[in-house]
Design a protein around this nucleic acid. Structure first.
Length: 266
DNA sequence: ATGGCATATCCTATATGA
């Protein structure tokens, strides 16, 4: 079973690249972020024609998340992150797919910092940590996949020098991420590739893609019930090289079928 | 310190991203 996360940076503009990726890589589950479209702007017919059921939560201009499942309909669990009824950003979806709880998240960017946007990022992160605590040992296998807008360590960026003041590298941001992992979550990509430079995002500036100057900010975290099934991880970087590409590339994990069956029955 | 590029909408100007 292959589970992926992909920040599409505008699903209307990115639909051809998204469909090309789905057809070629056939992920069983795809968590999408930055739809940048209203609910009625989600290309449901084309996604369905590609063989995927979907749930989505849109918003005008910004944010927006979706969960796609190949050959089935994701069973929606919740449409917002608990803890702040006044938060109107579409940044969180949670569903059950094939016996696994799938959380799709788009954590706030937080720039510029310091400032209200960084405060919002940290507040959102605290709410996410509180909710994750209920998922980590809730009796189900869980994956939390998305654009975390966190560069966990300096090994997760080509060169931190020009990014030192960026919200993605701040000590407070990294401390939140470490506190999340300390609950018992496994950072899938880092677990299987402890020493490798792996990036999931390359900005549009200064030919950063062509020079492989990237950041690792899209993550798939597994709870202890699911982590033993982790078999493989990767980044479909060919998608970043397409014409009119998103600045993120799809990032994925593969779960061992036999061990996944054990995880479901634990 | 700024800007480089891309996407969106209240679209020839501005907000946001990371």
């Amino acid at each position: 079973m292959k589970i992926a996360t992909f920040n599409v940076n505008g699903i209307k503009t990115r639909l051809p690249q998204l469909l090309a990726w789905l057809e070629r890589e056939q992920p069983d589950v795809a968590c999408l972020q930055e739809l940048k479209a209203l609910d009625e702007g989600f290309p449901h017919a084309q996604i369905r024609a590609a063989g995927y059921g979907a749930i989505w939560k849109g918003q005008r201009s910004w944010n927006g998340v979706a969960i796609l499942a190949r050959g089935s309909e994701p069973l929606e669990v919740r449409r917002e992150l608990p803890g702040d009824p006044g938060d109107d950003h579409s940044r969180y979806l949670e569903a059950a797919v094939d016996g696994i709880v799938v959380a799709c998240l788009y954590l706030p960017n937080g720039n510029p910092q310091p400032g209200p946007k960084f405060d919002y990022k940290l507040a959102w992160f605290e709410r996410f940590i509180r909710h994750a605590a209920t998922l980590v040992d809730g009796g189900h296998p869980v994956v939390m996949a998305g654009d975390y807008n966190v560069v966990p360590t300096d090994a997760d960026i080509y060169n931190p020098r020009s990014w030192r003041k960026d919200a993605l590298l701040q000590p407070q941001t990294r401390e939140c991420y470490q506190r999340l992992l300390a609950q018992g979550w496994t950072d899938s990509v880092r677990q299987l590739h402890p020493d490798q430079a792996i990036y999931t995002f390359w900005d549009y500036f200064r030919q950063h893609w062509q020079r492989n100057c990237g950041l690792r900010i899209d993550h798939l975290l597994l709870n202890p019930q699911l982590a033993p099934a982790l078999a493989q991880t990767g980044v479909d970087s060919w998608v970043r090289g397409l014409e009119k590409a998103s600045d993120h590339a799809p990032t994925w994990i593969r779960l061992d079928p036999t061990k996944l069956e054990n995880a479901r029955q634990t």
